[in-house]
Design a protein around this nucleic acid. Structure first.
Lengths: 244, 244
DNA sequence: CGCAAATTTGAACGTAGTCAACAAGTGTGG
DNA sequence: CCACACTTGTTGACTACGTTCAAATTTGCG
C-alpha cells in the first residue's frame, strides 16, 4: 500500500519532509476491511484502538438513556479515528461504518513514538485536533441556535466539501450515502422533519434530489441559510516547530 | 507568582517531573488582569494569543448572523485558552470574562518549544484537548437529543464539578455567577424558558435557590435527568511517552 | 419477484419561543 | 441618602416549530 492518507491531509497544511512522510507511513502499514454497518469500537467498551480511515465513510455517535442517538461526526478518508477513546478506559463513543471501508489500525505506542521523534508532526496532530474542535463548535452553535432548515443545509454543504477534500472530482451533485434518519440523528431532528426540510429546500430551488443523489443548485443561498464556514481554510501555521 | 495552574490540572493526570514543571511555569511567567465583561479575543479578529486562566470565570462564544449567541464553553482556572484561535488567521470564537480574572499570556513559540523539548507534555496537551473534545460532544448530544430540563440540570452539575476541581472546598451549594440569559445561551434555550426549568427543578426538590446561589439537593436525580458523565475520570494514560 | 428498509404525507400534539408587563435587585449620580 | 436608570428575574397568554403517530408509497436488496 503506497502513501499515507493522513499524510495527504497534513500535507494540505504544510510541506512534509521525507522523514515525516516515512513516520506517517508507519501509521498505515496494516489494513483492515470493515463492512457497512460494522462497529469498529463500541461506546463504554474497553480496548481503544487507533485507526486511520483509508476508504469509505464512517460515523461516530453516542446513544442516550432513552435510546436516541446523536451522531457526533462523519469520518472521511485520511481522518484519524479513536483518539478520544484511547485516553479512556471505556470508549466515550461508537465508531461505525456507513459504507464498506478500509482502515489502518495502529498502536498507541506508535503515536507515542511520533511525539518523541517528530515534534512538528505532534504539533500537526494537535492542530488537526483543533480544526476538528472548531468544526464541532460550529455544529454546537447550529444545534443550539439555528432552525431545522439551516441545520440540514449546513450538513449538505459540509458533506459535499469534505467529499471534495478527498476527491477533487466531486461536483455539486453527489450521493450523500445517508438515510434521512441518519441526517436527523446528526442534526438533532426527527427523520420525518428532515424529509420536510429537504422538500422545502427543493421547493425553494436550493437543491435538487434524485434517488439518493443531491445537487446543490444555489450554493450561495445554502451557505447563507446555514452560515457555513469551511474550517480547513485561512489557517496560520507559521509558528510550528522546525521539521525534525 | 509561584506554581502553574495548568500544571495543577495536568498533575491530576500524571506525576510531573521537576523539568516538566519548570517548562510549564514558563507559560505563566507573565500575568494580566481582565475585568468582568472584558473581551480577551474577539471572533473574526486577528492576533490569536494563548493564555492560561489563573483566576476567575470566563466563557467562549460565537455570534450568529441573526445576533443570537451560542456559548461554547465555560473556562476555569488552569484552562488553556486560545488554542483554537491561534491556528487561524481570524479567531473562530470570542473569549470574554464573566468575573474579574487573571490570565497569563504566552507566545506560540513557547508552545512550539514545548513540543520539541517535552514530548510527554506535548502528548498531555493533546490529551487535555481530547478531554475537552469529549465534553463538547457531550454537550452536542445534550443540545441535539435532550429536553430543556435535562440541559439545565447538566449545566448545573458540570459547573459545580468544575468549580470543585479547582477548589475542593466547593460544596453542593455554590454561586453560579451566570445570568439566566447566559445559561440559555449555553444550553440553546431562551432566558424565559431557563427560568421555568430552574423553577421546575426547584419544585421537584432537585435544587434550591437563594439570590444567585444554587444548592444541589438530589444529585442522583439530577445526574439521571441529565445523563451526566465526569470526563476527567476513568482515564487511561499508561501509553504516554517517558518524561524528558 | 418479494420483503424489509427508507421515504413521503397528513393530522394532532407538545415543547419551547415570543411578547408583554411587572418585580426585584444593582449601581450611579445628585 | 435617595432617586433614577438599567439589568436581571418572574409570570402569563399566545404562537409556532418540530415531534409523534399512522398509513401509504417507493426503493433497494437478496
Amino acid at each position: 500500500m503506497a502513501g499515507s492518507c493522513f499524510a495527504d491531509i497534513l500535507s494540505e497544511l504544510v510541506d512534509l519532509t521525507p522523514g515525516e512522510q516515512g513516520a506517517l507511513e508507519k501509521l498505515e502499514e496494516r489494513q483492515r476491511h470493515v463492512r457497512r454497518g460494522a462497529v469498529l469500537q463500541r461506546e463504554n467498551e474497553a480496548g481503544g484502538e487507533l485507526f486511520i480511515l483509508r476508504k469509505g465513510l464512517m460515523m461516530s455517535y453516542v446513544l442516550l438513556a432513552d435510546g436516541s442517538r446523536q451522531i457526533l461526526r462523519f469520518l472521511f478518508p485520511g481522518d484519524m479515528l479513536g483518539m478520544s477513546s484511547v485516553i479512556y478506559l471505556e470508549a466515550p463513543e461508537t465508531l461505525c461504518a456507513l459504507s464498506d471501508c478500509v482502515v489502518s489500525p495502529f498502536d498507541r505506542s506508535v503515536l507515542s513514538a511520533l511525539f518523541v521523534d517528530h515534534p512538528r508532526l505532534a504539533a500537526l496532530v494537535l492542530v488537526y485536533s483543533k480544526i476538528e474542535r472548531v468544526a464541532l463548535t460550529d455544529r454546537l452553535a447550529a444545534l443550539g441556535r439555528t432552525s431545522a432548515k439551516a441545520r440540514v443545509a449546513a450538513l449538505l454543504l459540509d458533506l459535499r466539501n469534505r467529499l471534495r477534500a478527498t476527491d477533487k472530482a466531486v461536483s455539486n451533485a453527489f450521493a450523500l450515502g445517508l438515510t434521512q434518519e441518519e441526517i436527523g440523528d446528526a442534526t438533532g431532528l426527527t427523520a420525518v422533519h428532515v424529509n420536510r426540510m429537504l422538500r422545502q429546500l427543493e421547493e425553494e430551488g436550493m437543491i435538487a434530489r434524485d434517488s439518493g443523489r443531491v445537487t446543490l443548485l444555489d450554493e450561495r443561498a445554502l451557505a447563507r441559510a446555514a452560515n457555513y464556514v469551511n474550517r480547513f481554510e485561512r489557517l496560520d501555521l507559521g509558528w510550528l516547530p522546525k521539521p525534525a
